[in-house]
Design a protein around this nucleic acid. Structure first.
Length: 512
RNA sequence: GACCCGGUAGCUCAGCUGGUAGAGCAACGGACUUUUAAUCCGUAGGUCGUGGGUUCGAGACCCACCCGGGUCACCA
């Protein structure tokens, strides 16, 4: 025992005492392995199949099976006891009877607690109350749980008959910090992360099927770029060099297009040294892909197809509920021009407004912290305030102003704009793509404009990446590229309103 | 960083205009060989976030601080 028993709470002390008793009786508290023949759900289903086929024996016995799992419920009845065992698939009821397991093994059940991992073997049957149950012939302790899990209670509401869950673990912060306990007592949380895994699998499957090559580019970079954001800064000691954690994959992936890997994608952790919010975690997962010989129109189509693929494969339907709102995915999604949307919100043509007039409009709307915002930032602020919240159904916003998009190609019909799109769902931006700027001279000019913004105090403005310009000078074919927030897509599919609820271990202030 | 709300038993919470700290669940002991929120009897469990102050007396009132949540700001 590593803790002074005096300092342990009564609850912990009771478990340590049980552990000591187990050891006195020669029972292994932390076993090495256990052979299972299936999962709880399979066992229940196969018993029901057996019933339908009339294969249950005269005394109601089904097949013999062995299962492993965690004890999540216990009802002691004296010379018999009922429990629920939870494994990766679900739950099954266990029935222990003194006459069956034997007096000694039955007595040892007293040393078990909720949260313990056990292995059981026996035959299935259906109880008087109708639940398919495993009649346990023998049980083995697999792991003693020395700290009680915060199990809640489920009850049927007296009036409506609905199942009401009384969580024993409602403190959100504690749930994030001790995600292991959150997962252990909340099957629905485990389900969110299964959904997340399936989403990522299907994104890969889709792009692989389209002939894309999955690649890996540096996380640790001597120069960061590809997005407007503040980086995390660190030091490589042997090289005595400042390094940055990547804020985007974009510039590396486009170098690969130059190199002739003409359809590439990467699923990456990106890092941005910014505030936290419902939609922002400092470390997040981004999917970026680039496809040569295509423009942003093709990439909007591809994005739609990708989204439908994921919906079909993960949910099996093309509609869902997000934060209580019904969302329908019917393609093609509406496409609205950025400047038209802002103009509509403002009730006047923004093209005709000077920078000063734009600022006055923003101030009228009480948009805070305009600071030294230039035309691009003013338009962006107006867009965020007037348009974004209304983009609940899947919608493409297209043709953003040039100042906002230093890596996007100038619009073929309007030099003030770029060929860019963002797709919004539920008021949040999830996809962002463009016809990639491949003219190295124009790219240099855009970088230089960013440097001016930086000098003017914009901390997120980009820097000149000479090596990237050198790559473009070798020649990058016309290319369409897209970045997509994987966490945010998972939020949509799993109906979660906070990014923290789709991250296993969200960023938190250090404990203590 | 700003504003609002919160911190009381392992968990969820109550605690009135200041008067000796409570409930349910969990735990522990006992009864019960088809229960499922099992039930019944009993026991134990608390530096009331921290530090000051007001008061005869503070969980409650005042001040400061710490921690958290929400909203906003920051953030393609």
């Amino acid at each position: 025992m590593s803790h002074d028993a005096q300092e342990m709470s009564q609850v912990l002390r009771a478990r340590h005492e049980k552990l000591a008793t187990l050891r006195e009786r020669g029972i292994l508290a932390f076993a090495y392995s256990f052979e299972v023949t299936g999962t709880s759900i399979e066992v229940v289903a196969s018993f029901e199949d057996l019933e339908k086929a009339g294969g249950v024996s005269a005394d109601g016995q089904g097949t013999h099976t062995s299962l492993g799992g965690r004890i999540v419920g216990w009802r002691d009845m004296g010379k018999s006891a009922f429990a629920h065992l939870e494994d990766r698939a679900g739950r099954i009821q266990l029935y222990f009877k003194k006459d069956i397991v034997g007096a000694e093994a039955f007595e040892d059940l007293r040393l078990l607690d909720l949260g313990d991992w056990i292995g059981v073997e026996g035959t299935t049957f259906r109880t008087k109350t109708g639940e398919v149950t495993l009649r346990v012939r023998a049980w083995t302790l697999l792991t003693k749980s020395l700290r009680p899990l915060p199990f809640g209670k489920v009850e049927a509401a007296s009036e409506t008959g609905e199942r009401v869950v009384h969580s024993g673990f409602a403190d959100q912060e504690a749930r994030y910090r001790q995600r292991y306990a959150d997962l252990a007592v909340h099957p629905e949380v485990r389900e969110v992360f299964r959904t997340r895994s399936r989403v990522v699998t299907e994104l890969r499957r889709f792009l692989d099927g389209e002939g894309f090559l999955e690649v890996e580019t540096p996380v640790l970079q001597p120069m960061y770029g590809g997005a407007s954001a503040k980086p995390f800064v660190t030091t490589h000691h042997a090289l005595d060099q400042t390094m940055y954690l990547r804020i985007a994959d974009e510039l590396y992936l486009k170098r690969l297009i130059v190199g002739g890997l003409d359809r590439v994608y990467e699923i990456s952790k990106d890092f941005r040294n910014e505030g936290l919010s419902r939609l922002h975690n400092p470390e997040f997962t981004m999917l970026e892909w680039y496809q040569a010989f295509t423009d942003y129109n093709a990439q909007m189509d591809l994005s739609e197809r990708m989204l439908l693929h994921v919906l079909d494969r993960v949910l099996g339907r093309r509609s869902l509920t997000l934060a209580g709102q019904a969302i329908e995915f019917s393609t093609p999604f509406p496409r609205i021009r950025f400047m038209d949307a802002v103009s509509a919100g403002l009730g006047t043509d923004v093209h005709a407004l000077s920078d000063r007039e734009l600022r006055a409009r923003a101030e009228d709307l009480r948009i805070p912290d305009l600071g030294g915002a230039g035309r691009g930032k003013l338009l962006d602020k107006l867009f965020s305030a007037l348009v974004e919240p209304g983009l609940v159904q899947p919608t493409f916003v297209i043709d953003h102003p040039k100042e906002l998009s230093p890596l996007a190609k100038e619009h073929r019909d309007d030099p003030r704009l770029t060929e860019r799109f963002e797709m919004y769902i539920g008021g949040a931006e999830i996809f962002n793509g463009f016809s990639e700027l491949n003219d190295p001279l124009d790219q240099r000019a855009r970088f230089e404009a960013q440097v001016l913004l930086k000098t003017a105090g914009d901390e997120e403005a980009q820097q000149i990446d000479e090596d990237y310009l050198r790559a473009l000078e070798y020649g990058m074919p016309p290319t369409g590229g897209v970045g997509m927030g994987v966490d945010r897509l998972v939020m949509v599919l799993a109906d979660q309103t906070s990014i923290r609820d789709v991250l296993l271990f969200p960023v938190l202030r250090a404990e203590e």
